[in-house]
Simulated scan of single mutants.
Amino acid sequence: MSTPDQKVAVITGASQGIGAGLVDGYRKLGYAVVATSRSIAPSDDPDVLTVQGDAADPATAERVVSAAIERFGRVDTLVNNAGVFLSKPFHEYTQTDYDQVTGVNVAGFFRITQLAVEQMLRQGGGHVVQVTTSLVDHASSEVPSVLASLTKGGLQSATKALAIEYASRGIRSNAVSLGIIRTPMHPVEHHETLDAMHPVRHMGEVQDVVDAIVYLENAPFVTGEILHVDGGQSAGH
């Protein structure tokens, strides 16, 4: 069971893929975890509290952070992993597409990060991590994705702004900027094409992302960093 000095991580988009990998990764670090997504199931682990809710809804953020404080007494790390990616020619995006992507990617970051930072200030420190995409730095003619650049690019800039605003108060802010990661989201028949989109000629694995975020977690002198975990995409083609 949790102890008063056990650190606590809040992870959004935590039910599958990268999010589920992060829950395991933070538990291995000894953290208690508050895991949230729309469809997340209860956990048998007494140190994992699951909270169902839509990341785009500010009420979900209130419930998640309140639950973390009520159950574990603190919030040491927030990983803003929940995200929506929708690739379409720019002129074909609908208002519904826009609302969905900005809702999860931007509104889903805004309120929960405010609440987590407020708690971190009370504690005297913490760590906020954003999950973004290397398409922000390296747009691709093969993957039209203006909404990803608009929203995740905003998060990438916000990552640095948060790092500077709170650097003197013990709160670090970093991001991982991803290539294509092998998750259930990508059907097997597309894997060969997706592999070829990286200079290293293969997709990343969930563990690659977890390892990168664990590195940032254990790097007290690193803040404002955008760590590319993208098989070389951001470096060139």
Rank of each mutant, 00 (worst) to 15 (best):
N80K: 02
R63F: 03
R182G: 04
V176Q: 03
A219E: 04
G25R: 01
V84W: 03
A35K: 05
D97P: 11
S43E: 01
M120I: 11
I226Q: 06
I213E: 03
E217S: 15
I112H: 06
S173Q: 06
S141K: 14
L227E: 01
L135M: 12
F72P: 03
V229N: 06
R201I: 00
L121M: 07
V79F: 04
T193L: 11
G236T: 14
V84M: 07
S66P: 04
V48H: 01
T36L: 04
H198W: 11
V136D: 00
P144A: 10
V117S: 05
H138Y: 13
V200C: 07
V131Y: 10
L147V: 06
H91I: 13
P199C: 08
Y98R: 08
A107S: 14
T223A: 10
D44K: 05
K160C: 00
A59D: 15
A55E: 11
F90R: 11
F110C: 10
G170E: 05
K7T: 04
S43N: 10
K28T: 12
S39D: 09
H190P: 02
T50N: 04
G224L: 07
E205F: 04
R122N: 10
R172D: 08
V104G: 06
E62G: 02
H198L: 03
S141Y: 12
T36C: 09
D195P: 04
V104T: 15
T36H: 04
D195K: 01
T113Y: 05
A67M: 07
V176A: 03
Q156P: 01
T60R: 11
A148P: 03
S177G: 04
H237W: 14
N174V: 01
A59N: 12
